[in-house]
Each structure stands twice: as structure tokens, then as C-alpha cells.
């Protein structure tokens, strides 16, 4: 079931979209903003709200990069792996980040469910390469030290809050 706020957020998007259908990506984004990712159940709820079938909506959901069809941590770290950051050796920082987070590669979520690390295409911050985003915040000119500080700050900010892990679920069901 969509919450009242989610419905309102979707409707708002419908108003500024060229057609009702056109609000589908927006609706996915709005629900993702509140739930972190789009589970099969969320997908069906949104589809129903938009008078679409789950298949129609999932076709769109699975096309876009920033719609998550599997669970992610509370914060998503997007490390730029495109050319300028690559030249500036993001791979070196990646290794550091993995150690810091205690995970073994892109796509993984920390044990406490706090961070998911994903690769990202160029963030448009090439003059400050290597760069990454945490949620909607951009960080450039990364070094090992600055990465430590950023991660630590998020940990402190979220500190006392219970770190309930997102429910695990699979993506699209295939037989």
C-alpha cells in the first residue's frame, strides 16, 4: 500500500508531466525516495496507482540506472568509474573504500545495512576527479583521508539510529 505522502508525491509529478503515463519514472523515484528501493510489492502498488500493469512499469524500472530493483543500504555511495576519475586513479580509492566499508566489491551492502557501494558513470565533476556521491551529495578531489572523513561523518550522523537492515528480496522474479 502506498502511503498518503507517496500518493501525494506521485500526483505532484503527474501534474508537471506531459502525460499521466509520463509520471511513471517519477513515481518510481518518489517511492524509492521513501523506501530506498523498489520491491515487487512497491512496483505493483505504483503500477496499480498509475493504471499500468506491473510488467509495463517494470519495463521502465529496469531500464533506468537509478531505480533500484534490489535492496540497498540506507546510503548509496556512487563512485565515479568514468574516464577522468579513472585517469586520476579512482581504482586505488576503490580499494580503500572497500576495506573501510568491509565489503568486497561494487554492488555490496555493508553488514550493518548502512552503505551500498555502486559504480557510477561520470558525475560531471571531472575537474575534481576522483569524485563520488553519497545519496545526493557530491564529493570531489577524493583522497584516502577525505573518504575516511566522509564515511565517518555519515556513521556519526546516523550513529544512534537503529540500523535496521532493509528487507532482503530478490529482483524481478523469474522461474
Amino acid at each position: 500500500m502506498l502511503t498518503q505522502e507517496e500518493r501525494a508525491a506521485i500526483s505532484e509529478g503527474c501534474d508537471s508531466s506531459p502525460s499521466a503515463r509520463a509520471a511513471a519514472p517519477h513515481a518510481l523515484g518518489a517511492v524509492q525516495a521513501s523506501r530506498g528501493w523498489i520491491s515487487d510489492e512497491s512496483l505493483s502498488d505504483i503500477a496499480e496507482f498509475l493504471h499500468m500493469t506491473p510488467a509495463e512499469l517494470d519495463s521502465i524500472a529496469t531500464f533506468y540506472n537509478r531505480i533500484y530493483r534490489s535492496p540497498v543500504g540506507r546510503h548509496v555511495i556512487l563512485l565515479c568509474d568514468s574516464v577522468s576519475c579513472w585517469i586520476m586513479d579512482y581504482e586505488y580509492l576503490l580499494n580503500h573504500l572497500l576495506t573501510k566499508l568491509g565489503i568486497s566489491g561494487f554492488g555490496e551492502t555493508t553488514k550493518d545495512g548502512m552503505f551500498t557501494l555502486l559504480p557510477s558513470a561520470c558525475l560531471g565533476a571531472c575537474d575534481h576527479a576522483p569524485a563520488m556521491m553519497v545519496d545526493r551529495e557530491l564529493f570531489g578531489d577524493l583522497t584516502r583521508q577525505s573518504i575516511d572523513t566522509i564515511i565517518d561523518q555519515y556513521r556519526i550522523k546516523d550513529g544512534d539510529r537503529r540500523t535496521a537492515q532493509s528487507p532482503l528480496a530478490t529482483g524481478r522474479k523469474e522461474q
Binding site: 512496483l43 517494470d58 519495463s59 529496469t62 531500464f63 524481478r172 522474479k173
Partner: peptide
């Protein structure tokens, strides 16, 4: 529908 993108596009139903 078609799901996914690049070389892993999938043609089928949302679920069986």
C-alpha cells in the same frame, strides 16, 4: 514486456 538494458534485455512477463 522488455526488461533491462544493454546486452541483457529480457523479454517475458513480470513474473511467471
Amino acid at each position: 514486456e522488455v526488461f533491462g538494458w544493454h546486452d541483457s534485455v529480457y523479454f517475458g512477463r513480470h513474473e511467471s
